[in-house]
Write a protein that binds this DNA or RNA. Sequence first.
DNA 1: TCAGAAATCAAGAATGATTCTTATTTTTAT
DNA 2: ATAAAAATAAGAATCATTCTTGATTTCTGA
Lengths: 142, 142
Amino acid sequence: MVSNSDNSNEQEDFPQEINGLRMTRQRREVYRSLMAKRVHPTAQDVFLDVKDKLPQISLATVYNCLEALTQHGIIRQVHFDRESCRYCPNLHEHGHFHDQSTGKILDVAFKPGIRLEDFLDLPPGTTVSNIEFTLRGTIVTH
Amino acid sequence: MVSNSDNSNEQEDFPQEINGLRMTRQRREVYRSLMAKRVHPTAQDVFLDVKDKLPQISLATVYNCLEALTQHGIIRQVHFDRESCRYCPNLHEHGHFHDQSTGKILDVAFKPGIRLEDFLDLPPGTTVSNIEFTLRGTIVTH
DNA sequence: TCAGAAATCAAGAATGATTCTTATTTTTAT
DNA sequence: ATAAAAATAAGAATCATTCTTGATTTCTGA
Ligand SMILES: [Mn+2]
Ligand SMILES: [Mn+2]
Ligand SMILES: [Zn+2]
Ligand SMILES: [Zn+2]
């Protein structure tokens, strides 16, 4: 690893720590990229984007950062079949709509107050700790 | 490939073709394995199971069969994060509940008559062609 | 019936996303 | 300031899946 004398962690307008996870420069830029664009990027997408700010960052570190942020509940992984994982900074309960014409991925919220038992035939005794909901299709604009 | 003089496709009690897909011995045994067990196996699981009946079958052929069956709408792929794909012969609209204690995967149906707009805030103009949802959790038996 | 043509299969190589390993650097705690 | 802990960069390893190739089987149409 090449020494980087300008690698301090000091940063205005940004917490030094989130959910008990120390915000290093790499983690902060990864998180910032997700928050700024909100396009559900892959690790590779994030890597390319963050390289503008931290040219020496490695793809492995981007994976490490995304994993750390995920484990601390700061971001979420999103899966579409077996494609590369995507990442989402929206922590509200939501699913994803994949527009097959544009490739865009949109957040889809549940109706307020709705519960799983309202629309699913769950086996009795079920305790659900995690939901992943994916839709595919198209959107016609007027 | 070793020649197999007993490789005929004749079989009682089974159609020679489903949805326009010719049922070769390999495809039939793969499909039979899925229908008999209904445990959402991986390709590797199917491979091990079908080898009892067709000892010379290859993993590549199991993948080919699963792909062909999927493309012809005879079975469905099921995804859990980036784990190995699993396969499901239940063609009704349904999602999956992954019991984290037992590892078992259960089919979960929608309540009859429910529509997406009843529980999701879909963007206007949305046409949904495919739904995939996955739940994780535990089941307590009385 | 029989000779292509087309489809399928087996085996192993290639691919690609992700994880792992290791040496180095940075941060934290004393 | 020093030692321990945590984080990073670089590249190797892993693993599910796809691809390639040559053999085999099935189909089609004289
Ligand atoms: Mn950029
Ligand atoms: Mn078996
Ligand atoms: Zn999202
Ligand atoms: Zn199923």
